[in-house]
Simulated scan of single mutants.
Amino acid sequence: MEYLVQSDRVREALEEVKGLLVGKTSMACMGDMLTLAAFSHAVPINHSLLGAYTTEREALTACQDRQPDLLYITEQLEQGYGINLALKVKNISPVTRVLLFLHRESQDVVREAIEANVDGIIFVHSIGQSADGDFLKSIRAIANGSSYYPKEVRTMAGYVKSIELAGLSDRESEVLEALCQGMSNKEMAEVLFVSPETIKSHVSTVIGKLGVKDRTQAVISAIRAGM
């Protein structure tokens, strides 16, 4: 598969990512030094990056000290394990939102990542599929306070559909599905043809009915219920 790095659409996407990250700080932790170096030098990422690491211990210490807005990780690290890092970071730096790039596409690994309450999961193979693919969509979602669990990831998780979400109305279920796709309130309002204020009310109701504290936990509840 060719990645058309010089295409106008790719350049537009990179500029959009750069704009989304203005005013935010980030860190990266990836086990492969080539991948880490290439990622860290990417123009949309570099200007917000506080540090880049290959081990769980280094990244955890840095997150505790500097409390970045975003942390990009892979599950494979030089030392340690990325999903363990994500779980620990949530405890010592609650402001940090975590985006996980998964190399291993198995049910066990996906479920383990979901249980770590990461804010977004994308499979590495999906990154270059299109300029408007999972990477850009995940950055849009996480930078705007939403979560990103694409259908491919939810399917791989393989949870059996349950009646856990039966208390939601049809419209609330639509809102929850949109949350799983990483949509902002504005995007949901445009898709569902209602006002952003109505969407905000629906999101609050969904969070309340599911008994969770935020949008990410609402998405995770939906995935566990087989949505």
Rank of each mutant, 00 (worst) to 15 (best):
G80F: 09
E172S: 01
E78S: 11
C180Q: 07
L87D: 15
H103R: 08
S146R: 13
F123A: 05
I83W: 08
F135T: 04
T155V: 13
L179G: 03
T96Y: 00
Y149N: 05
V89W: 00
L100R: 03
V175H: 03
S184W: 05
V95P: 04
V191A: 15
T96K: 04
D108V: 12
E152R: 14
R140Y: 04
G145K: 01
Y159Q: 13
E187W: 08
V203M: 10
I127L: 14
A189V: 01
E105V: 10
E105K: 14
E197S: 15
V191S: 11
P196T: 04
V118H: 07
I122F: 05
E112G: 08
C180D: 01
T155G: 11
S146C: 06
E172D: 02
A141I: 09
R104M: 10
S201F: 04
N185I: 09
S184R: 07
S204Y: 01
K151S: 13
T74C: 06
S162W: 09
R97H: 02
D119C: 03
A86P: 11
Q76I: 03
G182K: 13
R104S: 07
K161L: 14
D134E: 10
I127Y: 10
G128C: 00
K151D: 15
R104Q: 14
Y159I: 14
H103F: 11
V175L: 00
F135V: 07
V203T: 06
E75R: 06
S184I: 03
P196K: 04
E172K: 01
S130H: 02
